[in-house]
């Protein structure tokens, strides 16, 4: 019928690409993180843990870790909370729900660069819509993207606006999988709406929450585009994420050793996060419906 080699031949192209562009690069990153190199010279001398020492003792790196952690720990729970609440209203397959779902979903498939440009205009100090609206009420203009206290919150707002629809759509799929008789039972017992939401809906969509939590955290810790377009990490490092620093060190300062060290540290952090979540949350995920 077919030879024993068939499955290997079928997976070979995919595996070849994965090996060349994913797995070997991980090893290369680890190797380069122990060397000093600027892309130009032929020699890449081994410097041991020097790059890690430099990165881990730089205030810039710890600032970017702090900023990224605030971004992830605020924006991910915020998105999931909003999404599960909104999804429980939009779960029905009727016209109003579907219209609103479509509108909310749209931003998540559009270009992050374009969205970042548009919101840069909304939040612009002069001629920006938001400050113009404030002026109507006689309020002073706010330096949204120039104020170190505010810029990160603007970035979180834009990210939430863009990604919310994706979370909602995933939650709706999760909610639609819940058998309706469970709701009927809860309602017969005289459950209040919020009570039913808390005691029935939230526990039963736990697997969905877990899935979204894992992928949103991984994505949040790698945020780059919104920041690169809107603030470039400024003002004064207030929005400087780990990947923005990685890009700057690697591709504008051409410090391959330190850039690779940052990449490896980010990698370890995300793997640790995934393992932690599997250990701590994994136990609480499974509910038999």
């Amino acid at each position: 019928m077919h030879s024993r080699m068939t499955p290997y031949l079928l997976i070979a192209p995919l595996l070849a690409f994965i090996a060349v562009f994913t797995y070997i690069p991980i090893l290369t990153s680890v190797d380069l993180s122990f060397r000093e190199w600027d892309f130009l010279t032929a020699a890449k001398p081994w410097v041991g843990t020097e790059n890690y020492r430099l990165v881990l003792s730089s205030t810039q790196f710890w600032n970017s870790v702090k900023v990224t952690a605030i971004f992830a720990l605020v924006s991910v729970p915020l998105r999931l909370l909003l999404a599960i609440g909104i999804a429980s209203y939009l779960v029905r397959e009727a016209l109003p729900q579907r219209l609103l779902r479509g509108a909310l979903f749209l931003p998540s498939v559009t270009s992050t660069v374009a969205i970042a440009v548009v919101f840069s205009w909304l939040f612009a100090t002069d001629y920006g819509v938001i400050n113009a609206a404030l002026a109507v009420f006689g309020l002073p203009k706010i330096y949204w993207l120039q104020d170190p206290q505010l810029a990160l919150w603007v970035i979180i707002f834009v990210n939430t606006w863009k990604q919310l629809g994706y979370d909602i759509v995933i939650y709706i799929a999760g909610l639609q999988a819940i058998p309706t008789d469970l709701y009927d039972a809860a309602n017969v017992d005289g459950g209040k709406r919020f009570h039913v939401f808390r005691r029935v809906t939230v526990p039963l969509v736990m697997p969905t929450t877990y899935f979204l939590l894992v992928i949103s955290m991984i994505e949040a810790f790698q945020v780059f585009t919104v920041v690169d377009v809107m603030t470039r990490g400024g003002p004064a490092g207030a929005t400087d994420m780990v990947v923005n620093m990685l890009y700057r060190v690697g591709f504008t300062l051409f410090d391959i050793g330190q850039g690779s060290a940052i990449a490896v540290l980010l990698f370890i952090l995300l793997i640790a996060l995934a393992v932690f979540k599997a250990r701590v949350l994994g136990r609480r995920v499974h509910y038999e419906a």
Binding site: L15, I18, P25, T28, Q222, G250, I256, A263, F267, L270
Partner: peptide, 24 residues
């Protein structure tokens, strides 16, 4: 094992490959 290797790429943060892929 090979299937696990494919699925594991979902969890691998893409930016660790940025510098090496540029070099490749």
């Amino acid at each position: 094992f090979l299937f696990a290797a494919v699925v594991a790429t979902l969890m691998i943060p893409g930016h660790i490959t940025l510098i090496p892929n540029y070099l490749t």
